[in-house]
């Protein structure tokens, strides 16, 4: 009896949820090395991300978190290494992957509306030249509703608050109806309301069997929001279920001040 009550409590705690780990690998990264100049930003990264996890990538500034995502998505060209999505090269699997860039990476004074930005999420499946039609518009409106931004659909994007802009970016990725979502600091500079809205959407995605990978800065919320975590500091420190590896040892290894990597190694 005692065990059962414990289980119930465990079930109600988000951090103790068993990840829907089916044994299928959503993303596999092998020997990934990336350098901007001479100094490697990422060194020999091997990473296996099982399907259905909600994973945080944590690490100090300059640890290569964004670079890792950008390299997986072929935005940056790695020096070495390979990436497969469900066993095939990323290039063949683009439609399974959606990307939420950092909010600050674009100019929000661009002359366009919230709906227009979300519509961009449909462009990938449309392909070259074809115009979005009613079907695409409907999908975009649905995504806007999911992030609670339907009322702002005609708003010029510069007139949205930071949190609203982040939600627009999220909606744009949702429209892609992908299997794997990569998000670069979606919680940066958003208020509590938006943070809750975003995390609810992430959890919904996981419930639907999607894999979500999030670059995350707030260590406090890792156990609460995520079930999988990767510690990164140029090298991969550890990756696995939060309840197993989210501990002081790994945190010190990742954030410790003496940690250094060089090519000579």
């Amino acid at each position: 009896m005692k065990n059962k009550t414990e289980e119930n409590i465990n079930d109600s705690e988000p951090n103790k949820e068993t990840p829907a780990y089916s044994g299928v690998l959503a993303v596999k990264v092998d020997d990934l090395t990336v350098a901007y100049n001479y100094k490697p930003v990422l060194w020999d990264i091997d990473l296996e991300i099982p399907e259905g996890v909600l994973m945080a990538i944590v690490g100090p500034n300059g640890a290569g978190k964004s670079t890792l995502i950008k390299s997986i998505l072929s935005i940056l060209k790695p020096i070495a290494g390979s990436v497969t999505i469900y066993g095939k090269p990323y290039d063949k699997q683009r439609k399974l992957v959606a990307y939420v860039p950092q909010k600050g990476s674009v100019d929000w004074d661009f002359p366009t509306t919230a709906l227009d930005v979300v519509m961009m999420g449909t462009y990938g499946s449309l392909g070259w030249i074809k115009r979005p039609r009613q079907k695409e518009k409907k999908a975009a409106l649905e995504a806007l509703e999911k992030v609670g931004m339907l009322a702002f659909k005609s708003r010029q994007i510069s007139q949205l608050s930071g949190g609203q802009q982040q939600r627009i970016f999220l909606a744009r990725a949702l429209v892609q109806n992908a299997s794997i979502y990569f998000m670069d600091e979606p919680f940066q500079g958003v208020d509590a309301t938006t943070e809750i809205a975003i995390i609810n959407i992430l959890k919904e995605l996981r419930k639907a069997g999607k894999t979500v990978i999030v670059v995350h800065h707030d260590l406090q919320t890792v156990p609460e929001y995520f079930d999988w975590v990767t510690f990164l500091n140029v090298k991969k420190i550890a990756t696995g279920p939060v309840k197993d590896i989210f501990n002081d040892d790994n945190l010190t290894k990742t954030y410790g001040i003496n940690y250094k990597v060089s090519i000579q190694e």
């Binding site: 683009r94 661009f110 366009t112 990938g124």
Partner: peptide, 12 residues
């Protein structure tokens, strides 16, 4: 024009 990196991930 709006988001070059994102456009790349869409396969363009």
């Amino acid at each position: 024009l709006f988001d070059a990196d994102y456009t790349k991930t869409l396969g363009f």
